[in-house]
Nucleic acid binder design. Structure first.
Lengths: 109, 109
DNA sequence: TACCGGTACTTAGTTCTACTATGTAGTGGT
DNA sequence: ACCACTACATAGTAGAACTAAGTACCGGTA
């Protein structure tokens, strides 16, 4: 992964995953696959699982274990009310930052 | 500073500062002031100075010391060719990331 | 039977960047 | 003499993504 992208993902990857969980529960392996499909080809598996542990400990998601036909049981994550709040805050923070940055780009800076 | 913003600035603050330096040299105190004026009211002074040391060591800027009428000498930073390359890469990385994220927002996710 | 690829999750240790907190210095005004 | 503003520096901390390695379950194939 490019170093710039690695650093830029800090603080945004969590929001991206919370957004992916909106309206649709998912498990770790699935989320990793979705991220890859959406162009984040180089996100490390370990990164996603560590992030999921973190947001679970922060109480942003509910977890349910379900058997898989193809391997070990899946841990299915569902966004809860607290997670939705966090996601809203994420959108606010993101909007602020991206507006400033786009302004800099416009100014040819 | 909000924790989300702190994390989100990782990887973007460097690009923001490089963008500020485009076409106009500036010194640390000045850059800090500009950031504050542009809404980044809570960015710590020390953060900016540390960042400037870093981009100087990476060879992205040229430095010149100039006397000040009002205090200790200023260290004036100018974006050089390598810095412009880094800034271009920053815009590429930023574009990629912000497009994905805006797509997630559109999907109501 | 033994092996391998795909599915699925875990975690210890590293790196990088922003923050906190504090310190140093020069200038002008009261 | 003191204070506010200007101007830069840095040691230590926290947080998040990475590397690298491991565990475990299943099906197909040699």
């Amino acid at each position: 992964m490019g170093k710039q992208m690695t650093e830029m993902l800090k603080g945004t990857l969590e929001g991206i995953v919370l957004a992916l969980l909106t309206g649709k529960a998912a498990y770790g392996y699935e989320i990793t696959t979705q991220l890859r499909e959406q162009g984040f080809t180089e996100i490390a598996e370990g990164t996603v699982y560590a992030l999921l542990v973190r947001i679970e400990q922060k109480g942003l998601v509910d977890v349910e274990k379900r058997p898989s036909e193809k391997g070990p049981p899946r841990k299915v994550y569902t966004l809860n009310a607290q997670g939705e709040n966090e996601l809203n805050e994420f959108w606010n923070t993101w909007s602020f930052l991206s507006e400033r940055i786009e302004e800099l780009r416009k100014e040819g800076k």
